[in-house]
Design a protein around this nucleic acid. Sequence first.
DNA 1: GATAAAGTCTACTAACGTAATGGACTTTAT
DNA 2: ATAAAGTCCATTACGTTAGTAGACTTTATC
Lengths: 166, 166
Amino acid sequence: MKISQKGLYALQAMMMLARHHHQGAIKIREIAYEEDLPEKFLELILLELKNARMVESVRGAKGGYQLRREPSDIPLSEIMRLIDGPVAPFADAEQLRVLIDRDLPHRALYQVFLDVRDAAAKILESTTLADLISGTTPRSTKGKRAAKKKEKGSVLPMVVGGQKNE
Amino acid sequence: MKISQKGLYALQAMMMLARHHHQGAIKIREIAYEEDLPEKFLELILLELKNARMVESVRGAKGGYQLRREPSDIPLSEIMRLIDGPVAPFADAEQLRVLIDRDLPHRALYQVFLDVRDAAAKILESTTLADLISGTTPRSTKGKRAAKKKEKGSVLPMVVGGQKNE
DNA sequence: GATAAAGTCTACTAACGTAATGGACTTTAT
DNA sequence: ATAAAGTCCATTACGTTAGTAGACTTTATC
């Protein structure tokens, strides 16, 4: 269940639309500007989201995009599955179940994959856009480290590409 | 944390070596045959596993590979991180923590990613090769569906490639 | 010490996926 | 009519993935 750059863009765009919910159609250009996304690429993403009926578009002058449902009705899993496919480390849940039934020598391995998928799905299906735009995330207020020193405004730190270390 | 074909091969090879632990060096050809893996590709994978000191090789005639540690000391996470990188849906745990600290508008999103990674890591770090080769997986005896009809021997079912549905 | 069986290492490649970009076309408000 | 906006299709640069090929080195055995 790797999240692609495109998937991240989709999530950002949807968060932006959630923040501006009930404010009418928002132009691609505004979304791109506010979230700092490549405009032309974002266009394709919004088209996919529209075809999946998660957003609706208004064409022509004064046009733009808006959510079709309340932010609290849109789980992250839905956006991520649309853009990046199954929320699982390998195959999808049904294929994993088939493998568990049929590939006896490796069934324990596939069961682990399924357990990981279930854990991920549980989180991503229960977190909605509304959870992301309110000040704090409801699940997991754990991991709170003592207050940080204030950083200067630079939003993004260094690279994020992802080598092999963790 | 998508698992590549190569990652799956590595896990299969390690499971095979675990099954034959304390039986001396196992030839690449035997591993490839027993697990039905492409021999030349497996060779590269075993080399990586050797460089990571998870297995050791014996060169020359009567050579082969064997585990350097007990199967119960080798968590799946270690193999998967080596081949496929961080066990996280986006970036790695440390980068996610930095983003949570610094990218205020998206911190809630990155916190969700971190939660997913923690859930996956917990499972993959606590499951070892020994768990996979004993008859049953210790965690998650849940999800037990009533006894299946016996299938004929065909091990792998149809495609597994992975479209967008789940 | 010749031979054969094994691992080692480097290089290469075909196919695919990702992250875009460009441009013509359609729709709509004014 | 015009301009602003979404729509749709084609193309591309680049990197990754999943291998393959072949020469080289090491070791057991006779």
